[in-house]
Amino acid sequence: MELLTGEPLALDLVNTRARTPSGAEYDVLATPGTFQPWLVKQSGRLGAPGRPLTARDLAALRELRGHVETALDAVRQAVPAPPEALAALNEALRVAPPYAYLEARGAVLVGGTRRDGSDLERLLTQLAEAALALLTDPGVGKVRQCEAPQCRTLFLPAHPRRRWCSPELCGNRIRVARYYQRHKPTA
């Protein structure tokens, strides 16, 4: 199943759990094979792990996704986020914090940012940082769920009238269903 990406990274993480048009549940974080293509799509925003992720790694990512989703739901409903979700996000933020470095390349000094920690720790921290950015953004209240039946995708609309995660996918399905309803033969 092809998932839409390109929303803020934290929304893309939450959207790794989706429903197919038939209503079946699909989870990108179910296996390393289903997660790898998503990770490749995010390569401009996330560092790629140096080793394949394990089932235990994916369980940690699913847990983080659940906490992000819980905190996001609370923020969207304008209620306090559960303390356990915030504690989990804060823990993920601490495991591989970024640090600045300076190195010489010949006679030129260059600087940048690195992280210590395992591949999983770095990935969890990057995703938690993306959640922090989304959850503290004043526009987080604008996050919507796609209005198409069976779709659970969240998006941040660039236009206030946007109703679907994708006009080409969900929007088209709705338009086709409406057309069918208007033009179906009467018995």
Rank of each mutant, 00 (worst) to 15 (best):
residue 97 P to K: 10
residue 88 A to M: 05
residue 163 R to Y: 02
residue 136 T to E: 01
residue 185 P to E: 12
residue 186 T to Y: 00
residue 132 L to G: 11
residue 2 E to M: 08
residue 99 Y to R: 11
residue 141 G to H: 04
residue 83 P to A: 13
residue 68 V to Q: 09
residue 65 R to Q: 11
residue 168 E to D: 15
residue 60 A to C: 09
residue 52 P to C: 15
residue 106 G to R: 14
residue 175 R to I: 12
residue 184 K to P: 13
residue 69 E to H: 07
residue 31 T to I: 07
residue 143 V to H: 06
residue 73 D to T: 14
residue 115 R to C: 04
residue 99 Y to M: 11
residue 90 N to S: 13
residue 152 R to P: 00
residue 183 H to E: 04
residue 17 R to C: 05
residue 4 L to D: 11
residue 122 R to A: 00
residue 32 P to Y: 03
residue 59 A to M: 08
residue 166 S to G: 11
residue 17 R to S: 13
residue 135 L to F: 08
residue 48 A to S: 09
residue 89 L to F: 02
residue 123 L to T: 00
residue 174 I to W: 03
residue 12 D to R: 02
residue 174 I to S: 08
residue 7 E to W: 07
residue 51 R to C: 04
residue 101 Y to S: 07
residue 12 D to K: 02
residue 38 W to R: 06
residue 167 P to Y: 05
residue 65 R to Y: 12
residue 143 V to T: 06
residue 182 R to Y: 04
residue 160 P to V: 13
residue 122 R to L: 01
residue 138 P to L: 15
residue 145 Q to W: 10
residue 33 G to R: 15
residue 43 S to E: 15
residue 66 G to Q: 05
residue 40 V to Y: 11
residue 166 S to L: 13
residue 37 P to W: 05
residue 118 S to E: 08
residue 144 R to S: 15
residue 76 R to H: 05
residue 104 A to V: 10
residue 141 G to R: 04
residue 62 R to V: 01
residue 8 P to N: 12
residue 54 T to Q: 06
residue 69 E to A: 04
residue 148 A to H: 06
residue 45 R to W: 12
residue 34 T to Q: 03
residue 63 E to I: 10
residue 68 V to T: 13
residue 1 M to L: 06
residue 145 Q to V: 12
residue 181 Q to H: 14
residue 45 R to P: 00
residue 23 G to N: 12
residue 16 T to K: 06
residue 160 P to M: 13
residue 135 L to W: 01
residue 118 S to N: 07
residue 150 Q to W: 13
residue 46 L to T: 04
residue 123 L to F: 01
residue 71 A to P: 00
residue 83 P to C: 09
residue 175 R to M: 09
residue 88 A to F: 06
residue 19 R to T: 05
residue 38 W to M: 02
residue 113 T to G: 06
residue 114 R to W: 11
residue 29 L to F: 04
residue 30 A to H: 03
residue 79 V to E: 15
residue 149 P to K: 15
residue 76 R to D: 07
residue 82 P to G: 07
